[in-house]
Amino acid sequence: MSALGTALVFWPAAILMLVWGLYVFRTASMARAGLLLLGALGLEGLLFLALASQFLGVLMILMMSGEMIIMVFFMVMFMSDPGGLMGMDMTHDKRRSAALAAAIGIGLAVLAVATDWPGAVVSPDAPDVQAIGYEVMGRSMFSFLFAGVTILFAMVGGVLLAKEGGRLGLAEPGDGTSRRDERT
């Protein structure tokens, strides 16, 4: 992608991503918040594409589409006011959190601008799919396997955590695990 093409994709996507990201925490509707987050992270995938990381860009869009749709379901299930129709305020320490976040954002922006970073122009030689494949199946294979096992553990742990009664199952009177047994 040319420098002009990169700029034409990058600026609108970056601005929209930040605005949608902010609106995630400003909207009262939880379904809308989930879809805004999906949009923001999808636009981040577009930024990856603009920065010549095609593989990561497409992967980001695909992964976030699935993850955020699941998140919308969870939000609708567990929010006290999923539609945002009752006008409930689900925030705390609004001013202090906004002030701290603004201070850190400005600090990071100043640091990014003030530092003398190497490189000036986006390179079209970003690692392509083949190079990432060689990396994954070569030097970083152990880390990749570890990531796979971590996902497996997360799936098993997640199911056990979410199961009714936890990993030990429901307590039966007399089996030594219920609170009534502890008292007696």
């Binding site: 930040l18 990201g21 902010l22 930024l47 689900m90 705390h92 320490d93 990071l108 990014a112 970073w117």
Partner: peptide, 27 residues
């Protein structure tokens, strides 16, 4: 045009928005 500091500024602002959500939301 786009340069590395621009990308880092966008990422820094995005990080700050996420932090605002983590600190300010009750759910």
């Amino acid at each position: 045009m786009i340069s590395l500091p621009v990308v880092l500024v966008v990422a820094g602002l995005m990080f700050a928005i996420g932090l605002y959500g983590v600190l300010g939301q009750t759910n």
